[in-house]
Design a protein around this nucleic acid. Structure first.
Lengths: 152, 152
DNA sequence: GACAGATAGTCTGTGCGCAGATCAAATAAC
DNA sequence: GTTATTTGATCTGCGCACAGACTATCTGTC
């Protein structure tokens, strides 16, 4: 079998036919859009997600530890540890040792963290709306829900 | 306005309603699937994309330089430089200075590179098919095409 | 043929994303 | 109550992803 014949699978029309590559490229572009939208607030996208998730989880006065935050945000525990440390360095969140479990660190959003999160949510939603404007959001969400997998 | 009222935007039902977050999570999961599928071949997903793209571009005996390869693959020029160096170290591609332009490096896929690419394409297509099996691929591709942006 | 601007490639530096290992504290088993 | 296992957090290390800077070369214009 020649090399050319072997390539006559999905790569027949060039690699750009693959849904996976399209998904990858789309997300990279979306990440750049988010990065640009959050740059004025000195936040990366992941930092925003963790900050917003921490605020969400703590909305009823029960601030999460890092494992719970990672589970909510769908991020790695190690990375969550790193990013949370950066958010702490920026004064947006505070970490205290859990009085009931000295291994765990309870994460609280500070006042300036809450303020930054409010502005960030506005910026992200505006950028999101613009990014997804060309397509039917409901239809896309329907498809992605079946692929995203459970929040580990 | 209270903090709770401010949060009553898209985050009302929790952050998981956002198409952007779904897109992000889906792609991360897809990346893990690709990583697992390519691990036996000692290739990362990006390495595979650049190797396959180099083979695609060179299929008519006109091997590309790194800028052309990056344009085809939709990757950053700098990262393309790094990853191509890794592929070269693995003996999968070879770089020669373009005789017509001493700045440019022409990229050729070696015999072992072509063999690895063949196997990788099989592995990736199988993993891809399984990943996207739950949804209508055509419908998803249609949506993503409108969001992926041109291949810069 | 000299010079301005564009182009090809690489370097530094920051920040994810994840595998594997470490360590201390909590929990379960006996 | 001591041991074994699990759990929360962090560390090392590798590989993208990208911004900004830098060198070397090529091209267009005079």
């Amino acid at each position: 079998m020649t090399e050319e014949q072997e390539l006559n699978t999905r790569f027949k029309g060039g690699p750009s036919e693959s849904p996976g590559l399209l998904l990858w490229r789309t997300t990279m572009r979306w990440q750049r859009v988010m990065t640009a939208a959050l740059a004025p607030l000195d936040l990366t996208h992941v930092q925003f997600v963790l900050l917003a998730s921490a605020m969400w989880l703590g909305r009823n006065g029960q601030p999460p530890n890092q494992v719970q935050l990672a589970a909510q945000a769908g991020t790695e525990v190690k990375m969550t540890s790193d990013v949370v440390a950066r958010l702490e360095a920026k004064g947006l969140i505070a970490r205290e040792t859990d009085p009931h479990d000295s291994r765990a660190k309870v994460i609280r959003v500070t006042a300036s963290g809450a303020a930054a999160a409010q502005r960030a949510i506005m910026a992200v939603e505006a950028a999101d709306a613009e990014f997804f404007e060309p397509v039917d959001e409901t239809q896309l969400v329907e498809l992605l829900r079946q692929l995203a997998g459970e929040i580990r």
